[in-house]
Amino acid sequence: MITLSDVTKSFGNNHVLRGVNLTIPTAKSMVIIGGSGTGKSVLLKSVLGLVTPDSGTIALDGQDVRRAERDAFLARFGMLFQGGALFDSLRVWENVAFRLMRGAARRPKDEARAIALEKLRRVGLGPQVADLYPAELSGGMQKRVGLARAIAAEPEIIFFDEPTTGLDPIMAGVINDLIREIVVEMGATAMTITHDMSSVRAIADEVAMLHEGTIKWTGPVAEMDDCPDPYVQQFIHGRATGPINAIR
């Protein structure tokens, strides 16, 4: 279980997180929605330690993440980045097997390649792409490779940063279905940030709405449509008028 308590973060005069309180239960898929620039990525990166909060605590299974042993902590996570963040200089299979070829989880090269090919197959990519470089792949294929890399070491917790951004609706649907299948199959805890409502409905068990640095609403995805919160209603229906300023 991941617990965020009164987490704040500012960049100069820009107060991005203003006291975020949120609990992500174990083996549940939490989707955080909110407009662009509302701090969703900062929140996600704060949990991973890529951004240091100004105040508040973030706990994983009751332990403050700042006090956790860094490698052991990160070994529990997998992450799919918005743009894939594949390493240009490495072949596709080396990207997928990156964690398996270094550090505590190190495996022999042949075994790491075999696992990488299996994970690529799991996300619908054949062995013919394994020896290509990321620049030779389409955006959708890069996302799938990023997903394969995120699950390669079978992490307990997987983060997805805008998993469908930049994809056509069909490919977005494929990625959403893959994420849902993999999270259920692995029994992983998932945290996704997105503003794509089709992703929310496909991936989420729970939904949290982040606006102006605080969580405005959180609850099961089944209750989202009937939620009385005006922020949530404006966001999920994409209305230009409401409490959220359309021009920021």
Partner: peptide
């Protein structure tokens, strides 16, 4: 392109 963040999340 967040590759450096990706390295960190991959315990490197």
């Amino acid at each position: 392109t967040e590759q450096i963040d990706a390295l960190t999340t991959l315990s490197t």
